[in-house]
Simulated assay, not measured.
Amino acid sequence: MAINEPLNRKLRMGLVGGGQGSFIGRVHSIAACLDNRAVVTAGALSSNPERSKASAPDYDIHESRAYGSYEAMFDAESKLPDGERIDFVSVTTPNHTHYEIARAAVEAGFNVICDKPMTFDLAQAEALLETVSNSDVVFAVSHNYTGYPLVRQAREMILNGELGEINAIRTQYIQGWLRTQLEAEDQKQAAWRTDPSKSGAAGAFGDIATHAYNLGRYMTGLLPETVSCHLKTFVEGRRLDDYGTAVVRYENGGLGTVTASQISHGRENDLEIEIDGTKGSLRWRQENPNELIFRQNGKAHQIYTRDPNASYMSGSGAAACRLPSGHPEAFFEAFANVYASAFDAMALRGDGQTVERRDTVYPNIYDGVEGMYFIQQCVASSEQDAAWLPLKHDAARR
């Protein structure tokens, strides 16, 4: 099969962010290029023009395509012939910059893959949705945990009714790296994540609880109704929450919990989800991503392992695998699966075909809006002593 049929060529990536000292920008570039379907062609790698251009060799970006700003990149790339200009933009900068960059990219006609949370606040998310709706671009949000093969396996099992009616969703994302006030030591990743002018109204809940909440939505398709939330800042002097728990009521009568911590000693990236249905239950843990546990009363517990050739694997689960069973696949591969699904749509758009932008395998603009609404309502609920507030947004679709 040719690369990116029907285009039969690699897609050209324009990277915004990812300069020296960045974590997530490098992850995006590796994920995009993992399947040989894309190449990093241009970049505006830092808000500092000199650092931006100095970082270009790290990505093998030619100096002529190393730009001092995203505005300069979009302007120059738009003027290049179709066979040379970038096809898509990856936005890998701090939260407060996402909206302006993504909007400018869409208005310039470039497809976009934006890091989460999608924007600084809900108003920006809704404005960006309007901009995307008035274009034909492909817009993806990097909720990368949706790309794990066994997450997609679980999603198909649930939507096919194997768990019956869903009663409960328990999700947690537990870290410990912010147990001390790293931001006071000018640690780059901590500094912007704990700064409300850059991160937004939430700390841990904006950074990692959004992943946990999105995972439950993605796997079950349940529509949320209301939320009650407690947020807490335990580290003295910190300006945003570093711990919190939310309870979600779903339209079908089910209940969900979302717990996020960045101050739990010894915890790394422990994202876990348990789903209870009337016929069975599932458990998946990101730190052991190649196993999915299925339980039914009175029967032996079943452990699904990631195996693309196994008869029990669903179509989307098997399609998300790259290696034979026993060879672990994890973070980069899951991230790459989000890119791969978006690439499929980009290739069709590039061929002049109409693409589905609402009901997609990859997280899209609507998921991004839902995530921002979740953050807004959790913060508001916590400020009102865990009052129950509405959670269903017009963007909800599954």
Rank of each mutant, 00 (worst) to 15 (best):
H301P: 10
A42E: 10
S228A: 15
Q172T: 08
K53N: 09
T220Y: 08
Y362S: 11
G147W: 04
T259M: 02
L255A: 08
R155L: 08
F74K: 10
A76F: 12
E251C: 02
A168F: 11
Y339Q: 02
L282E: 03
R103D: 09
S316K: 14
Y243W: 13
Q181Y: 06
S264C: 02
A330R: 03
T245N: 07
A330T: 04
R397F: 11
W388Q: 14
R179T: 14
L223T: 13
A342K: 02
S197E: 13
H211A: 04
A154N: 10
S197Y: 08
V16Y: 00
F74R: 08
A2F: 06
L15R: 03
N252D: 11
D307W: 12
I263C: 11
P6G: 08
A2T: 13
A209N: 12
L80Y: 13
I275T: 03
V138S: 02
E329W: 09
A44W: 03
A246C: 07
V361Y: 07
S325Q: 15
E5C: 01
N4S: 09
G176S: 14
Y373D: 01
A123E: 11
Q187L: 10
D241I: 00
S261Y: 02
Y366L: 15
N48L: 09
E268Q: 03
A212Q: 05
Y304W: 14
G216N: 06
E272M: 08
I61H: 13
S78L: 07
K79A: 14
G368H: 13
S382G: 15
L240A: 14
T278D: 09
R103Q: 13
T92A: 04
D385H: 10
L182R: 15
V137M: 07
D276E: 15
L178E: 14
D359V: 10
G19L: 05
E71K: 14
N111D: 15
V40A: 06
V369A: 02
Q124S: 11
I158V: 15
P94T: 01
I113P: 01
R285A: 13
G147I: 06
I275K: 02
A2S: 15
P196N: 09
G43H: 07
K79Q: 13
R357S: 06
W388H: 06
K232R: 11
Q353G: 04
R217D: 01
R179E: 12
S261D: 04
D207E: 03
G109R: 00
E162H: 11
R349F: 10
G352D: 12
Y304Q: 05
T92C: 02
Y213Q: 00
A320C: 07
T171K: 07
K188V: 12
I174F: 01
I208P: 04
I158H: 08
S52N: 09
A125L: 00
I158D: 12
H28R: 06
G200S: 05
